[in-house]
């Protein structure tokens, strides 16, 4: 053992020097190399982790926004369709209403016109009847060339008119 130590020159000075050197280096490396680099590495891994999480959250948000947008678009489309349908229905209703009204109005106008025509005809008939009586009187007076009292005249006219009336009424009905 002694010889071995002698041969390898193991001595206290060298051992102490190496020990001090090692401890000094341990301190220096730990303080200036390991701690800063390990801190950086930890920081890096946490940052990468956070970045990945953020990316995932962003993707999720994007997906959500897309779904929302699609929902909004489909909602708007549905609403527009509804609106068009409603507008169509209103237009149809209005048209029908106007038509009905127009038809009613036209009917009313026609009826009134018909009534007026009938009344006018009746009046004209009455008027004509009066004139015809006078004319007949004048004609008859001229024809028989004799005077007649008013009483006889009247009776004659009445008789005439009574004969004329059915013929006149049948004539007016034909027109």
């Amino acid at each position: 053992m002694e010889a071995l130590i002698q041969e390898f020159d193991v001595n206290l000075v060298s051992l102490v020097f190496q020990l001090i050197n090692f401890l000094l280096l341990l301190y220096l490396l730990n303080r200036f190399l390991f701690k800063p680099l390990l801190a950086r590495m930890d920081e890096r891994s946490s940052k990468i982790e956070k970045g990945l999480e953020d990316a995932e959250a962003a993707a999720r948000d994007r997906e959500l926004a897309r779904a929302e947008r699609e929902a909004a678009v489909s909602e708007a489309r549905k609403e527009a369709n509804e609106m068009i349908a409603r507008a169509n229905k209103i237009a149809e209703d209005t048209r029908n209403e106007i038509l009905t009204e127009a038809r009613t109005e036209a009917e009313k106008v026609t009826t009134r016109a018909r009534e007026e025509i009938v009344a006018e005809k009746d009046r004209a008939m009455a008027e004509i009847r009066g004139q015809v009586a006078d004319l007949a009187l004048a004609a008859a007076g001229k024809l028989i060339r004799h005077e007649m009292d008013d009483k006889a005249q009247k009776r004659l006219v009445e008789e005439f008119l009574a004969e004329v009336k059915p013929a006149g009424s049948s004539k007016s009905a034909r027109s």
Binding site: N21, L24, L25, L28, R31, F32, L33, P36, L37
Partner: peptide, 12 residues
């Protein structure tokens, strides 16, 4: 030691 210490110094 000097090589390692200078590396450590650089890293810090």
């Amino acid at each position: 030691t000097v090589i390692l210490a200078s590396l450590a110094f650089w890293a810090s």
